[in-house]
Design a binder for these strands. Sequence first.
DNA 1: CTGATGCTCAACCATTTGGTTGATAGTTGC
DNA 2: GCAACTATCAACCAAATGGTTGAGCATCAG
Lengths: 114, 114
Amino acid sequence: MVEHQPAALDGVFHALADPTRRAMVHQLASGERTVSELAAPHAMSLAAASKHVRVLEQAGLLRRAIDGRVHRCSLERQPLVQAFSWLRAYTEFWDARFDALEDLLNAGDDDDRD
Amino acid sequence: MVEHQPAALDGVFHALADPTRRAMVHQLASGERTVSELAAPHAMSLAAASKHVRVLEQAGLLRRAIDGRVHRCSLERQPLVQAFSWLRAYTEFWDARFDALEDLLNAGDDDDRD
DNA sequence: CTGATGCTCAACCATTTGGTTGATAGTTGC
DNA sequence: GCAACTATCAACCAAATGGTTGAGCATCAG
């Protein structure tokens, strides 16, 4: 069962409303990045990028492993799935197909869904 | 083909970051509503609700048909599909299964495809 | 130890956001 | 015509957002 805590969605959608942060999510999708690496492509100070990282972190989209003086950041997909799941209900085109999908999943393989 | 115009996603995700506006989307999902009807459940002035309606409208999520003194609002799903589609790429859990799903649907029952 | 590096913190600033109230415009019904 | 109703507009306000700069704190390399 997918729980929808409204406040959590506030944070996730807000985090994704900024193109810099969406780009960071995109970067993280292909693997871990340090804060500097996340900041590099974006024409702004490191401090500003650091704030974006913090927004992603507080939205639960980013996990940080402090490793010496380097912060290794990784993408946390669960909140994305939550947002995805919320949207699902209102994009009727996919809706019917998702039911079939879940039937398929429940019948066939039950992965660990954390 | 789904186009991703970044600025459009800014607006859509921003619009969805507010619980009042998500509730309005929910209301609209079951059919047209006037501005007053959208405002009613939310403990705020009509003017405040009207601003939320405008945010949804500017994000392309809401279409307005002015009908006498009443504004009949309806949900525009296309931007939701866009956001959904953006998220899909980062929720890998679902991603692989989409293909299986579509295979399943294309192979088995293509009678009720809306 | 010293200096450079990676990152955060604090203060500051302009703009946006989300709400208020009061006034106003157009529509409907008597 | 007039009153009621739907909705927006305008002005205002407090708080949050997104950026800056400068200082500071660990940590790593030599």
